[in-house]
């Protein structure tokens, strides 16, 4: 079973808000939140891939992309 790496919600937008609204807000929900205790014998990255990803286990890899230059998000 897989879980989303990110959740979103629609905040209240007031009629007199001073700035253009961000209608959808997101927050990270990395995989460890759904894993109370890591199961034995999970598939592993190769050592080179593990270093690049920061973890030995694909099941615990959580990508994150910069918001720089992405506008209102």
């Amino acid at each position: 079973m897989s879980f989303p790496n990110e959740h979103s919600f629609a905040p209240f937008i007031g009629p007199f808000d001073p700035c253009p609204p961000i209608t959808c807000k997101t927050y990270s929900t990395p995989p460890h939140l759904y894993m109370c205790f890591q199961p034995l014998n999970l598939p592993q990255f190769s050592p080179q891939e593990a270093l690049r990803h920061g973890t030995l286990w694909p099941a615990l890899y959580s990508p994150y992309e910069s918001k720089w230059g992405k506008g209102r998000c």
């Binding site: 990395p30 995989p31 109370c36 205790f37 890591q38 920061g54 973890t55």
Partner: peptide, 17 residues
């Protein structure tokens, strides 16, 4: 920075364990 962020995730899981 993405590498360091991932390490925080692993450490959090280890403390939860």
């Amino acid at each position: 920075l993405k590498f360091l962020r991932e390490r925080e995730i692993i450490h959090s899981l280890r403390f939860r364990e």
